[in-house]
């Protein structure tokens, strides 16, 4: 065959760009996380301080609070999306007039920029101009104020994420459900299995790989949710919606404490990698068992 040199030349620009903007920043941030560096402080030098940044980080109540709300957000959002997405996917398995149009409409939020989703929900929920606080007040006398109530702000971010990303879960689960063979279901019905039994013993094991893959993707995205929350609540009130990405954005740049900021970034990256890896293993494990 023709020379491999051409192949390397074709690959070179890609590798160069990803090296400069992917690998170098990665090693740079890891290196910086072991140093103290604040260019606008009294001592603007880069000083090696060992694990001091991490020593401070594990006791940093702001960071730990951010970690806590991030976990809560991710769990609530992804679980809700899975349940709602599954119910909608099963609803799509039957025929009804206008199915294609509804499917198209349902896909619509997926293409929208996160920041636009944030601004839409800001317009929906800001007390003076939003329709939701107005209706809630009129119907049940509840005063929804995402600027003051931590619970309300948290709930609205979860609802926003569900609105934005449930379609993805629905569509992936439809793809999984469509490809299921009919035989086991017919057999189970002949044997007199109930709906619940069929779901737990036949449907769920068969769509499990698709479910795990969907959870994997949603978890990764939910962990790095920044834009919409920044737009909607700006991390507030207090630190109720200060998810990890928002925390980095708000903490690192205004304070110009680059060494400590790097340590936060490294730990966030570490947690993301661990979560992704565990799920990846979860995806592979059932396959290797056979």
């Amino acid at each position: 065959m023709h020379s491999n040199r051409l192949g390397w030349w074709l690959l070179a620009p890609t590798l160069l760009v990803l090296f400069l903007f992917g690998a170098v920043p990665f090693f740079y941030v890891v290196w910086l996380s072991f140093h103290q560096w604040n260019p606008f402080a009294v001592n603007p030098e880069i000083i090696y301080t060992g694990a001091d940044n991490f020593r401070r980080l594990v006791f940093d109540s702001g960071f730990l609070a951010s970690l806590g709300v991030t976990v809560a957000f991710v769990v609530f959002a992804v679980l809700t999306e899975l349940i709602v997405g599954y119910l909608l996917a099963t609803a799509f398995m039957k025929d009804f007039p206008g199915k294609a149009i509804f499917r198209t409409i349902h896909t619509l939020p997926l293409i929208m920029a996160p920041i636009i989703v944030g601004s839409i929900w800001k317009l929906m929920t800001t007390p003076s101009i939003g329709i939701i606080p107005h209706l809630l007040d009129e119907w049940i006398g509840y005063d929804l104020n995402i600027g003051q109530s931590a619970l309300a702000a948290f709930t609205v971010t979860v609802i926003m994420d569900v609105w934005h990303w449930t379609p993805l879960v629905t569509l992936t689960l439809i793809a999984a459900l469509v490809s299921l063979p009919a035989d086991p279901f017919e057999q189970a019905q002949i044997d007199g299995a109930g709906k619940r039994q069929i779901f737990w013993h036949i449907t769920l094991p068969m769509i499990a790989p698709a479910v795990v893959a969907t959870v994997f993707i949603r978890l990764m995205d939910a962990l790095r949710t920044v834009d919409e929350v920044l737009m909607l609540t700006g991390g507030g009130p207090g630190s109720a919606t200060r998810y990890l990405g928002v925390h980095i954005f708000k903490e690192v740049f205004p304070k110009t404490n680059y060494g400590y900021g790097s340590a936060i970034s490294v730990i966030v990256l570490y947690l993301t990698i661990v979560v992704c890896w565990l799920l990846y293993v979860g995806m592979l494990a059932p396959r290797t068992k056979k």
Binding site: A51, F54, V58, F59, I267, Y270, I273, V274, W277
Partner: peptide, 17 residues
Amino acid sequence: LFISLVIWVAICLVWLR
């Protein structure tokens, strides 16, 4: 190797805390 590194970091963080 990857698992070892991940566990290494985890042990160090727990240790620091």
